[in-house]
């Protein structure tokens, strides 16, 4: 589904990602771990289509298409979803209006009829239950005045509505207490299917107790320096990133 080959990316002349390779297949959950500044969020931005970086080399294929050529909104309509590390507050834009517009723009792109107001409301209620979100949250402006946990729940709620094929969750666990973490992880697990894939970007192993990955990659200074199964995350938790660094140098 997603195939990243030899990707090199810089921001303002500084190389952040160096020759990264990654293959994600349908039905898989990948975890990308790494210390701060290793390039995790940049990778998420490149896949979602933010335009604050320069791709120096390499390619990103998504279901065979060159993803780097597509604007952010087309990527979204093609089924890519980015769960933001810091969801943006947008005063005055209601979540319901935003999501209905987003969903209908996606449906139009796919050649489907737009949902009516009533159909959308019904769908919204369904998804709210699914991700355990309180009804009043969706009446509010996007993320405005939300707590850290509410913001992340709102990301998962949007994901549930848009039903992406490839979800990139960027540090979704940051700033969450254990209860919020469980809700967020529970939402992600419920959305797992054989035909979609999830890439979880995280600093800590904790989230991976709830979202169990098929593959774990360690990103360090722009490279994936080690890949393995879910046990790699536990090993990292125990020994720290220093261990990998030493091992790689050795």
């Amino acid at each position: 589904m997603l195939s990243i080959k030899n990707l090199t990316v810089s921001i303002k002349g500084k190389t952040i990602i160096r020759g990264l390779n990654l293959e994600v297949k349908e039905g898989e959950v990948h975890a990308i771990m790494g210390p701060n500044g290793s390039g995790k969020s940049t990778l998420a931005s490149v896949i979602a289509g933010r335009d604050n970086y320069e791709v120096e080399e390499g390619e990103v294929l998504y279901n065979g298409q060159n993803l780097l050529e597509l604007p952010a909104e087309t990527r979204a309509r093609e089924g890519i979803f980015l769960g933001f590390q810091y969801p943006v507050e947008i005063p005055g834009v209601s979540i319901a209006n935003f999501m209905r517009t987003a969903l209908n723009e996606k449906r139009k792109y796919l050649g489907l009829e737009p949902l009516t107001g009533a159909e959308f409301l019904k769908l919204m209620e369904e998804k709210k239950k699914m991700v355990d979100i309180h009804s009043k949250l969706t009446n509010r402006s996007v993320n405005e005045g939300f707590s850290g946990g509410e913001k992340k729940k709102n990301e998962i709620f949007q994901m549930a509505l848009l039903e992406p094929r490839l979800a990139i969750l960027d540090e979704t666990d940051s700033g969450l207490d254990i209860d919020a973490l469980k809700v967020v992880a529970g939402g992600v697990n419920k959305l797992r299917r054989n035909d979609n894939a999830t890439v979880v970007i995280t600093h800590y192993q904790r989230l991976l107790d709830y979202i169990v990955p098929d593959h774990v990659h360690v990103l360090y200074e722009g490279y994936i320096i080690k890949s393995g199964g879910k046990e790699l995350a536990l090993e990292l938790e125990e020994k720290g990133y220093e261990w990998i660094k030493k091992e790689t140098v050795a």
Partner: peptide
């Protein structure tokens, strides 16, 4: 970018904001 990353084209996102 947040709005566009959910599938809104630039024009719609601008208008909404």
């Amino acid at each position: 970018f947040y709005l566009r990353s959910r599938g809104l084209c630039e024009r719609t996102a601008r208008q909404m904001m």
